[in-house]
Simulated scan of single mutants.
Amino acid sequence: MAMKRYEMRADIYKFVLGEQDPDTGSFPDSTWDYDNPRNVRATGGSVRTWQSIEKFLRVDQGSYANESWIQLFMPFRPDLDDRVGSIKNKAGEIIYANEDGTATVFNVRGVFPQVDVNGKTIDYHVVCARVQIQP
């Protein structure tokens, strides 16, 4: 059964490396550029009913995770370290929002080219998981 795809727009946030710490070799100031997103058109929707994927990681310790996954189809190929957010419907309304009303942000977890019968890439299937700690 094919998923019904809805027209929408989404912001892509690029990951930006900060300056490298010469002592540790780490990049402590690295973050996503939320101030300069790339707005792209997309279609897609939830992989499952919103907030329906639950995992009990260590039942003996009471660990619990609730994951929300979405899939988008877009002509732009995001990188796996990008984030997606501010996903809006055709009317400009935010589709995925946190309890406080802010737009939900997702990590890109997979990018798969979709090709036509001639082998030409027509768009990219982008699978995203909700960021556990929202920015």
Rank of each mutant, 00 (worst) to 15 (best):
N66T: 02
I87S: 07
A65C: 05
G92V: 14
P78F: 14
V126L: 00
D123I: 06
N98E: 12
N118W: 12
S86A: 15
R109A: 11
P78I: 12
V117L: 05
D100T: 08
R58I: 10
I87Y: 00
L80T: 06
R130C: 05
D60P: 00
D60A: 14
Q61M: 13
D82N: 06
V117D: 15
A129L: 03
G101Y: 11
T121F: 01
R77L: 07
F76E: 09
M74A: 15
E99D: 11
N107K: 03
I133Y: 10
I122Q: 14
P78C: 13
F106A: 03
G62I: 02
V105L: 07
V105M: 07
P78N: 11
L80A: 05
I133S: 14
S63K: 09
Q114P: 00
V59S: 15
L80D: 05
V111F: 04
A97N: 01
G110Q: 15
D100N: 15
S63P: 00
A65F: 05
H125Q: 13
I87P: 01
S63V: 01
R130W: 13
T102S: 15
L72G: 07
N107M: 06
P75G: 03
V117W: 04
G110H: 14
F106H: 04
D123G: 02
A103M: 10
D79R: 08
P75T: 14
E93L: 08
G85I: 15
K88F: 09
R77N: 10
N66W: 06
E99L: 11
H125Y: 01
P75Q: 07
I133H: 11
I133M: 10
V115G: 09
W69Q: 07
V111G: 08
N118H: 12
F73A: 12
D116R: 09
N89L: 13
F76Q: 03
Q114R: 10
G119A: 09
A129I: 01
I94L: 04
R58A: 15
G62Q: 06
I70D: 07
D82R: 00
K120W: 12
I95R: 05
R58F: 12
V105E: 02
D100L: 04
Y124K: 10
D100G: 05
R58Q: 13
R130G: 04
D82P: 00
V111C: 07
V108Q: 06
Y96R: 02
G85C: 08
G62Y: 03
V108T: 00
V115F: 09
R109F: 02
R58V: 13
Q134S: 03
H125P: 00
L72C: 09
R130V: 08
S86N: 13
S68A: 03
R77Q: 13
G62T: 01
I70T: 05
W69F: 15
I87A: 04
W69G: 02
A91F: 10
A97Q: 11
G92K: 10
N98W: 06
S63G: 03
D81V: 09
G85M: 07
